[in-house]
Design a protein around this nucleic acid. Structure first.
Lengths: 129, 129
DNA sequence: TATTGACTTAGAGTAAACTTTAAGGATTAA
DNA sequence: TTAATCCTTAAAGTTTACTCTAAGTCAATA
């Protein structure tokens, strides 16, 4: 059992954000202590892990909420969930490919400017003599 | 020479956004026709290509503006520009690695749910008989 | 017991990057 | 010439995902 602060540290999400996620239906059924404090389980942490994974790869909170709700709706939503994840996976692959393409461009630029810089510094050297 | 609409089509940025970028100092010195219409050159398109590359890999417009301003300031900013690009390149590499890690996780999830779905559908089949 | 830390609701504020609107006038291509 | 495109300024609106505040109460830890 983890307090909201512990979970905040583990996930990197603020306590505010954790409560916000719960209110929005991203994370459901968080247990409470007799006094009403949230007590997160390892399962909750796992769920949060998936939420962060989807979020950090470009899925909107709205879509994540949809996915979570489907999960709670039971087996008959398995097909839709698989489709949803598959599609997201395709997007991720496309995104990685795009990033790779951009990386090549930036690498080229870095080399280009580095060479220019080298030439410039050499010129400075000569002029200083 | 391209009109704002042509550039909009080529870059995928709206005419509004192109004017907005110009106002913000992201793209400077766009030529004008005698009547005052913007006339983009191939160089402008190239500059826009770099802007989109940086933007789509997570650089903020503010940082991009800074880079563009440095470029206009001449050779003595070469070092800073190289540093800026190098750092961005490191971020990109880290981001791609992170995405790859998340992709593994999502792939695992897809397979896991696919298997569950297969089992579920088999069960449905049996029950239908 | 004293001091943190947690709880609630409800709403306001923030940041980025656009996007839209409005109003009126000028230019360009067919 | 006429329809389509472009220009300007200035400001308001949009979206997402938080982030913060307030006010008052309650719980947990040393």
């Amino acid at each position: 059992m983890y307090s909201i602060q512990e979970v905040s540290k583990k996930t990197g999400l603020s306590a505010h954000t954790l409560r916000f996620y719960e209110k929005e239906g991203l994370l459901c059924h968080v247990e409470r202590s007799p006094g009403g404090f949230r007590q997160y389980t390892d399962e909750d942490l796992e769920a949060l892990g998936l939420i962060c994974c989807l979020k950090n790869t470009g899925m909107s909170l709205q879509e994540i909420t949809r996915f979570v709700q489907l999960t709670h709706a039971g087996e008959q939503t398995l097909k839709e969930r698989v489709e949803l994840l598959r599609e997201h996976r395709e997007n991720m692959i496309a995104r990685i490919a795009e990033m790779q393409k951009y990386l090549d461009k930036v690498t080229w630029k870095v080399n280009f400017f580095s060479e220019k810089l080298r030439a410039y510094e050499e010129k400075q050297q000569r002029e200083a003599q």
